[in-house]
Write a protein that binds this DNA or RNA. Sequence first.
DNA 1: AACGCTAACGTGAGCGCTAACGGTAACGCT
DNA 2: AGCGTTACCGTTAGCGCTCACGTTAGCGTT
Lengths: 344, 344
Amino acid sequence: MKDIAKIAGVSINTVSRALNDKPEINEKTRRRIKRIARELNYTPNSIAASLASRKTKTIGLIIPDICDPFFAQQARGVEDTAKEEGYSVILLNTDEISEAELKAVATLRSIRVAGLMLTSVFPGTDHIENLNKQKVPLVLLNRRCQEIDTNYVINDNQKGAYKATKHLIKLGHKKIGVILGPQRITSVLDRYVGYKKAMAEAGIELSEKYIVYGENLKPSTGEILAEQLLRNNPRPTAILAYCDSLAIGAYAAARNMGLSIPEELALVGYDDIPYAQYFEIPLTTVAQPAYNMGKAACKIILEKIKLGGDEKDLESQHIVFEPELVIRKSCGAQVQIESSWSDY
Amino acid sequence: MKDIAKIAGVSINTVSRALNDKPEINEKTRRRIKRIARELNYTPNSIAASLASRKTKTIGLIIPDICDPFFAQQARGVEDTAKEEGYSVILLNTDEISEAELKAVATLRSIRVAGLMLTSVFPGTDHIENLNKQKVPLVLLNRRCQEIDTNYVINDNQKGAYKATKHLIKLGHKKIGVILGPQRITSVLDRYVGYKKAMAEAGIELSEKYIVYGENLKPSTGEILAEQLLRNNPRPTAILAYCDSLAIGAYAAARNMGLSIPEELALVGYDDIPYAQYFEIPLTTVAQPAYNMGKAACKIILEKIKLGGDEKDLESQHIVFEPELVIRKSCGAQVQIESSWSDY
DNA sequence: AACGCTAACGTGAGCGCTAACGGTAACGCT
DNA sequence: AGCGTTACCGTTAGCGCTCACGTTAGCGTT
């Protein structure tokens, strides 16, 4: 930039104005400067720009595991919307480990991200309050926060689980096991509540033995938990999994134990990952619009960034998507054939 | 940091030394300064640090689409290794669009990433040469580069495709169609060569009609291309897909056309995404160690960063992983039952 | 006692940019 | 003619750190 200024015979500031398309500059000089910049193969140093302007063009995204297609789709939604406005996204996986989340938030704070989307697994709120204090826009993805008011984007977890459970009940099941995730996660609680509500409405008593919690959302965990459920006597005739990833583990467990799905075990998942329809026994599941949820979260962030911590911007945004039960074979209901593949 | 210095009664520099664990400082003052920093809830500004030191702690990862589980696993491998050394990764999706790749490289250059991993879809080399000129460590992921010598991490694409094709031939197939990706991608070429080699060895003549190229690697593209292949007369009895994502589309195409797999159509994919084994007709495919490939790529980057553009470090690294044919039902061969789920 | 040496800290300059302000010429207006 | 006004550009002062020095006190050494 200094070199450009020297060659163009103008001040550094003018070069900055030209390259950043500021208004107070002659159109000819702008073009000339841009040409020189191109000839010099100049790459703007956004680090320096960030330091000087105290603004960055990066936002952070903290999720449990990008390998889970549900989060991958959300990440894609985030990245696409961020890119539209010239923002880059830094991705951090936590594996549902609380300490990893704290560390992730710390590094992103130090990188001075302009905003932050968080699928939180941490029970505390200190890190969230810190962000608020520093006026870093935050939206919780897939999570609510009971203690403090924050932006969030979720699907109606309670309703989704309610729908799924009710569906199983309608199919005649009474002994319905449920595989949940870490208990500290709000959406786990919400889906549990939905399950409980449906059971209560049907007058079915809950059994502690039919409710298991996992430390993460990986299929291997689902497999262990499903086996645990299926060793009960009497054995549950249906399983509701917190998410499709865990449901995949349940498939494996059933296979291990020689149980056929759906005849001997009905299975319902949550998320509707794109592969669920292609399984040997296509998975009945509760669909969430993952991509659009990511988009929505990012849009909120972008909006808040533009407002720039404006005092008038007091209210936080809450977007709740509608969950939709997708009935396939794994639950044992009648099904119609699915249409073509629709990309992630 | 200034505030800390004032409170501690030392210079800013001493604070910097304390916080960054530099050696030339008294252990007591260090602890005292760290305590004060904690009390003030101080967050280091890595932007300023980067500008002053001309080093950043972020690396870039450019891939076609994070929603493809294969790339998701690679991304995970990258992120995990980066995190170990305190680096963050910026993720950019290109959707196999060349312009998107150029733009991605440009933004990452301007962010001054310390290193860059690239699953390139761009035929040119200008952007790569620019990175070399600026001494930004680069490793190509899943791609080679014919023109210039660069680091790369791939699997032996030619051999993998050769194995898969040979397997189909051994099963009695002669009319083997192949669904490829964008022609400009090196791995597409390599897999095509492997296919061609196996066909030649078996004395089977190639037919242009049985070779189709897609503009991207999405299932919907695979569906269209598979239908195109299957409308041929005589119809191919087997299809080799460039990747599992495209193979998924082939499943849909077969369903649409009322063809049963593997009886009327044998299908083989590439990548071995974790869901392939759970499909209605489990997918025979060529496995790549995606996670470890990501790890390997990131390790090279980290190494190169440490060397810091050392003149002696002339040679680039080439890591080639061994592809492994995983035989399941979709090809029509005899199969054994798969074991438990192993996480992504 | 005079010397060097080292541990521990301070000083100053600067990384590459932005933002606020200041200056100047050219123009129009009364 | 004198005034304000606008368009354009330069100047200055940082942003919050790091790095290469310079400095000082305290120590051992001969």
